[in-house]
């Protein structure tokens, strides 16, 4: 009998490679942009606080450093939440859009863009513009509606959640389209740009907000890894393995809705990271969540920083929306991996 090792690399090696790539990609993210800053200058500015010229120092401290850190955090939040949802739905094709978060966020953001011009003038909440607050509220409201629709006294049905998510997303899409129709040219452009995701609005306030969320989720999510593994066998099987499945589902939905809503609020809709990153990691190291969750967080961070760096240099001085770049970078890599995986098995 031939023995097939279905894994491409071990989790340990994967983690090591990602940990090497992370600082390299981050430095690259700090270097690239309309103004190129050399590695030596970056190191002296970030490590000792002086060196380089004052303009470079300003660019690093006010623009690029918060932007790179925000990309790291948003990327890891999206990828981890994607992994959680794929586990919860026992479907490797699930992504945060399934629980209606992205669609709801779009409605919230569009509402603010179209009707809230008076709001945007007066100030920020925790570094968030009114659009971000609208997006966050929209995301949370839709996920609560979908969760309530799928929950009966017998428990929460993930199948119903999936269907309700599709229906609510369609409804939210219609609402966003209506708003786009009502919008003038400038509003329309802002709506569509927002839906492609971008990290231009990065600030230390947003980094703080994301860091708190990521830290909170980073403490809680790893505890669910064994239960998530068990639930891949099926809900009743997980129950027979001693997992309190109803509470697990609730916690996972809350964690992922929160994580995605925060990401969407600070960076708009960034497609593909939540779907692809966990999927790629699973192809590399297998579906064990004890490895999958931390490795997805690392890989998501790396992917988004790299995508954002690229977004800044392809069409200078303008920027591509980062969501476009994640798809451009990620999709071919994903397809390549799929082909490799098929050939091996």
């Amino acid at each position: 009998m031939k023995v097939l090792n279905t894994r491409l690399i071990t989790p340990r090696l994967c983690g090591l490679l990602l940990l090497i790539a992370l600082p390299m990609v981050s430095l690259l993210g700090l270097m690239t942009g309309p103004v190129f800053i050399s590695l030596a200058d970056i190191l002296s500015i970030t490590l000792s606080g002086n060196g380089g010229n004052s303009q470079e120092k300003l660019i690093i401290e006010i623009i690029r450093l918060p932007r790179v850190i925000l990309s790291l955090l948003v990327g890891s939040l999206l990828a981890t939440c994607g992994a959680l949802l794929q586990g919860l739905f026992r479907n490797p094709l699930a992504d945060p859009a399934l629980i209606g978060v992205s669609a709801g966020a779009s409605v919230g953001a569009s509402l603010v863009i179209v009707f809230g011009s008076m709001l945007t003038a007066n100030g920020l909440l925790l570094g968030l513009s009114a659009i971000s607050v609208g997006a966050f509220a929209g995301a949370i409201i839709t996920s609560v509606i979908i969760f309530r629709l799928a929950t009966s006294p017998q428990g929460t049905s993930v199948a119903t959640m999936l269907l309700a998510g599709i229906a609510i997303s369609a409804l939210a899409g219609a609402a966003t389209n209506t708003l786009s129709y009502l919008a003038d040219n400038d509003m329309l452009r802002r709506i569509s740009l927002w839906q492609m995701g971008n990290l231009q609005g990065a600030s230390w306030d947003r980094v703080g907000l994301c860091a708190v969320t990521a830290g909170f989720l980073g403490l809680l999510i790893p505890r669910e890894a064994r239960a998530l593994n068990a639930i891949l066998l099926g809900e009743s099987e997980a129950r027979h393995l001693g997992v309190n499945v109803e509470w697990l589902k609730r916690r996972l939905i809350i964690y992922s809705a929160l994580g995605v809503a925060i990401s969407v609020a600070v960076a708009g809709v960034i497609a593909f990271v939540g779907l692809m990153v966990p999927h790629v990691i699973r192809l590399l190291v297998g579906p064990d969540h004890r490895a999958l969750l931390p490795l997805s967080a690392l890989a998501g961070a790396i992917l988004l920083v790299a995508a954002d760096a690229l977004a800044r240099v392809v069409i200078p001085p303008a920027e591509l929306p980062v969501g476009v770049v994640t798809a451009l970078l990620g999709a071919p890599f994903f397809l390549w991996l799929l082909v490799v995986q098929r050939r091996r098995t």
Partner: peptide, 28 residues
């Protein structure tokens, strides 16, 4: 779950765990 185990009629596992990892889930 410490002392009672249940084997269902069929399994719906779609994720590519190795057989060893599937058995390991029994130790959850």
């Amino acid at each position: 779950a410490q002392f009672m185990a249940v084997l269902p009629q069929s399994s719906t596992l779609e994720f590519s765990f190795t057989s060893e990892e599937v058995v390991a889930l029994g130790r959850t």
